[in-house]
Design a protein around this nucleic acid. Sequence first.
DNA 1: ACGAGCTGATCGCCTCAGTC
DNA 2: GACTGAGGCGATCAGCTCGT
Length: 202
Amino acid sequence: MARRDDFDRSVPLPPGLTVMAIEKAVDYVEREAAEFVEVYLEQANVFSALVGIFAARALDANSVCEKHRHTDLAQTRFPDLKRRGSGNNPPPEHCLECKASKRPWAVQSHYDHPGWYIIWRYLVDPTCSLEPGRPVIIWRVDVAFFERSDWKYEGSRAGAGGGGRTHTFGISNPAAKLRGKAVYARSDVAVVRSKAVPRNGV
DNA sequence: ACGAGCTGATCGCCTCAGTC
DNA sequence: GACTGAGGCGATCAGCTCGT
C-alpha cells in the first residue's frame, strides 16, 4: 500500500502525470505482482518486465498518459507511454518510459532515447515482513528527464564466437543524476550494501 | 572498508521481412 | 503459408576498480 507520507511533491513530473496516479499505480503493481512471485524465483529478469508492464497499465488507466498504439516500425517502439493527444511521433517532453528494477541506481536500456523515465524500484519480501499479503513492495519511484547525452554505450562482445550480453545503453552516474528525483521513497526501506532491505524495528 | 561505477556473462520474449 | 534470421524489447548477477 503506497504510504502518503513517503511522497515528495516537489519532484518535477512530466506533463499529465500526477502524484495521485503514481500512488494508485504503486498499489496496483504491488497487488498484481504478488500473484507472480514464483516467476521472480524462476527468472528474475522476466519478473522485472512484468512489473514494468503492470506499471504502464496502471498509468494508462489513471493518468492522461496512455500506451502507444505503435503502428510504426519496430525500431520506434519507444516510448511505453505518451501524453494523450501528442500524436504518433511525440516530442521527448511527452514521452514516458517505464522501467522496473530491483537495483538501487542503475538504469539500463537498449536505446539512448531522450525523454521522461519513471523507474519503479522494487524488492521481493517473501516473508511479507513489511506488509502482510504484500510479497512485492515498490520502495522507491524515480522520475527524471534524460537527454541523449546522459546515456553511454556499453558495448557487447556477443557474436558468432559466443557469449556476451546484447549491447546496452546505461545512464552514467545514475546515483548523482537521480538525487532529488524520488517522487516516492518508503522510509522503512534502506539501501544496505547496494541492496534494498526492510529497515529494522520500524 | 564500503558504496558506487563499470564491464562482461547470461537469460527470456516478440515482430518484421525475406525466403523456402 | 511456414520458417527463419535479424533486430527490437525486458532484465539480473558477479567481479573488478576507484574514490571517500
